[in-house]
């Protein structure tokens, strides 16, 4: 197991294939991160909305109790 390149600059250039390799990895990791974050955000939004509804329901209940 050994580092395959002479230097970091060499590693980034990849003998001219750098742009292809790095672009592929960048796109892939961007998609993977999106795939991970998106359900987390969706859950957060869902919880927020539910809490709002619960509060609304509670407020309605107390309001109707007050009028009775």
């Amino acid at each position: 197991m050994k580092f395959q390149f002479e230097s970091i600059a060499d590693f980034i250039a990849m003998n001219g294939h750098g742009p292809y390799v790095w672009a592929s990895y960048a796109i892939t990791f961007a998609v993977l991160i999106f795939l991970l974050i998106s359900p987390l955000l969706q859950k957060k939004a869902f919880v927020k909305q539910q809490i709002k509804q619960q509060k609304l329901a509670q407020a309605n209940n107390t309001a109707s109790e007050a009028t009775e």
């Binding site: 395959q4 990849m14 390799v21 990895y25």
Partner: peptide, 21 residues
């Protein structure tokens, strides 16, 4: 795959895309 696997004798470094493709 990017830094420690050897380069391909025919395709050079572009083959490293295999590791995600």
């Amino acid at each position: 795959g990017l830094a420690f696997a050897p380069a391909d004798f025919k395709q050079g470094n572009s083959y490293r895309i295999i590791y995600i493709h």
